[in-house]
Design a protein around this nucleic acid. Sequence first.
DNA 1: TCCTGTCACTTTAAATTTGCAAGTAACTAA
DNA 2: TTAGTTACTTGCAAATTTAAAGTGACAGGA
Lengths: 127, 127
Amino acid sequence: MSKLNNKDPKSDTGRSFARSPCPITNTLDLLGDKWTLILIRDLFFGKRTYGDFQSSPEGIPTNILAERLKRLLENGIISKEAYQDRPVRYAYTLTKKGEALGPIVEEIAVWGLKYIEGTEANLSKTN
Amino acid sequence: MSKLNNKDPKSDTGRSFARSPCPITNTLDLLGDKWTLILIRDLFFGKRTYGDFQSSPEGIPTNILAERLKRLLENGIISKEAYQDRPVRYAYTLTKKGEALGPIVEEIAVWGLKYIEGTEANLSKTN
DNA sequence: TCCTGTCACTTTAAATTTGCAAGTAACTAA
DNA sequence: TTAGTTACTTGCAAATTTAAAGTGACAGGA
């Protein structure tokens, strides 16, 4: 039951990985897609509600948004709390683990600004 | 004809983007998937041939490998050259633009090592 | 010459994921 | 009562990914 390359990381002993024990591979399995790091970026820019994320110019589909928020919650990268009752409204914020993604987001922005023509640094909230 | 949010980046004036002018978004459109940064990692570890990439423990499907190498070539992140004739064999290497991805890969590795239990730093070539 | 093997891909078909649109539930304000 | 907002969920077509097999160029050995 404790085979390597188990399809489900985290299951079993915690020492089996979906693809390999490489930290890069496993980080990519968590946030290596076209939307997750955009959410992390938005969180760094102070966005906190479901509606805030939807309003970013990239236009994330709502089903993808819900699923990504769930995955980030399950992995302890963000936390969710009601910031008001009547009606209940939720705010998502980065945990310490999530805040630690800062340097990754920063280096991606630096590279993009330097090598992709026409990209612009954040102009307030028009990410 | 020069609308923003054009579906085809690079088309038109070069000032229209697929999703937004954000450097993070555009970098993600280039390498935000589960395989591209693994190839970049392999290149940093000195792998250079098609076979080298195939032999990494993650087991990239060959059609994906071919397509990603093509995209990285088209975007000037890697270059391809024959390193022998009879039979012709090709080596892929990082360009200056590709080498500049070093800090991103590094920060991803640092985060993964710290926050994903069980991941291990590169043990020679067993990425 | 024929056969086997390697390297660098390409093709095919099925499985998975994505994107778009519409729908739902809770509640509030008019 | 009706309309509006927020935070999702559902359904389905389209796009992407995956595994597996196939192709073509060439080399070496029998």
